[in-house]
Design a protein around this nucleic acid. Structure first.
Lengths: 263, 263
DNA sequence: TCCCTGCTTCCACTGGCCGGAACCGGGAGC
DNA sequence: GCTCCCGGTTCCGGCCAGTGGAAGCAGGGA
């Protein structure tokens, strides 16, 4: 049988990328058939391309023969995030050392917050965010802070969407959220309590760059400790100011590019 | 003009991967021409493929139009390393908290050590290793420790190669190195002093799994503090034992796969 | 104005890609 | 032991997506 009948015009490049990005779902390993389905490719095509990806180290097989992302891709990703970590990470580490609580830094990526860096110890806190992971903005403290200080059209666009509700405590009423954001702008920090995951609460402050919002810096605590987390506010503000000072000399464009790409 | 004349038989997949892996060199950004050269591809082919990679978010353009790895690839890489970090990272973080020194965990990948995790503060120590980065085994403390406890044929194979000499202090005499490794096996730890980079010293202990060497756990200090770094040995051994306990229940195969792939 | 360098566009040819179908292997059920 | 089933692997000839040399373009320096 001649090939190329179904879905013609799809480039090889897009197929290769579809195979790699199939792992974005968060699934650790996929069988060949699962991968083919996820990438919307015929099994035999998947088989052929996967063989080449495995050869090159982009994908790898686990002991059961299932497919995972290869170590070479992991290395590549680490390389990509290098510039970013080099500038921001020491501060996040400091925040953790000073507060003893899980500390993280996030930026806006489309309609979600993307966690750029995260420092945590052995203390067990219900965990929702992870480095390289995304969460809805309105459910997280860092996200609310970013949204609060974003330009108005970003907020408008955000509210004109369906708002997810990860837990029963997540605020999804646009009017109420708008009020909350106004308050965040006034007081200079935002909080969440069990809005993204039961059992954890969070507080965050904005990190500005040349006058506009650049990122959100926050800590996560057990929700039972939520009432006392405000005591960390001065520390958060101090570290935020340090980051602002350290990045002030970097042109906005470059910073955004390196925050988004890390190159 | 007909295409496909030079270097026929090269698959599109391999070209796409060559473009991505061109950034393994550590260069943060490349111009189109540089990328074409690094990937050994004609300029116009590069141009076309790059356009698609940029569209999909695998590559990105910085403000100057130069090419970098895209944030989506960074996210993917984070995803790949997830299982690994989830198990090992808290211990490395503990090691840092207890010693206050840059702490790292590495495994063997071929003839090099691959840094799997690393925790560091604002303290400035001349830095050679980074997460996702590789260094020669004979120049680093973690590498020597791993090599020392590896099976004999691994050591033999290693010495039958040209040994790099990053600094004037790097030991590259096979006989002397073999003696050093024997001593490491006896005393249960290894050190380096300015062998990988001037100004820094390091001490490391082995992490075993089901009787064989699994990883190396170490700290880095300023070389001026090298004489006192032995005081951290009990801490290193304690954390190493914790990691061994925490990973003992995981089958070796699975562990190796997840250490190497992180799925 | 001219040159040079790096990037973008063009286009006719063609060989690498395509994927349905056949085949294989091993585990579960009878 | 035989059969079924289900993932994975192999096969192969038609054909169109990919090809890359060459021409065109933009911009900056002399």
């Amino acid at each position: 049988m001649a090939g190329g009948s179904s879905e013609p015009g799809r480039s090889v490049t897009s197929k290769v990328l579809a195979l790699l990005f199939a792992f974005e779902s968060g699934r650790r390993s996929l069988s060949l058939s699962e991968l083919a389905e996820a990438a919307h490719l015929p099994l035999s095509t998947t088989h052929r391309l996967v063989a080449e990806l495995v050869d090159s180290g982009a994908l790898a097989r686990d002991p059961q023969g299932r497919l995972q992302l290869g170590i070479r891709l992991w290395e590549l990703g680490q390389n990509a995030g290098r510039a970013l970590r080099d500038t921001a990470h020491p501060f996040v580490q400091d925040l953790f050392s000073l507060t003893g609580e899980t500390s993280h830094l996030a930026i806006r990526e489309g309609h979600e917050v993307l966690y750029i860096d995260r420092v945590y110890g052995t203390k067990r806190v219900p965990r929702a965010s992870r480095v390289g992971g995304r969460l809805p903005m309105h459910a997280t403290a860092v996200g609310k802070v970013i949204l609060a200080f974003e330009e108005e059209w970003v907020r408008d666009a955000y509210f004109h969407r369906h708002l997810e509700q990860p837990t029963a405590y997540t605020h999804i009423n646009p009017v109420r959220l708008a009020e909350e954001l106004a308050q965040i702008r006034e007081q200079g920090y935002g909080t969440t309590a069990e809005e993204v995951r039961l059992g954890s609460a969070s507080i965050a402050v904005p990190v500005f760059h040349t006058g506009s919002i650049g990122a959100g810096l926050g800590i996560v605590v057990l929700s039972s400790q939520a009432p006392t987390m405000l005591r960390h506010l001065p520390t958060l503000r101090g570290i935020s100011a340090q980051i602002e000072r350290a990045t002030a000399h970097i042109p906005l464009e470059t910073l955004r590019a390196s925050a988004k790409i890390g190159g």
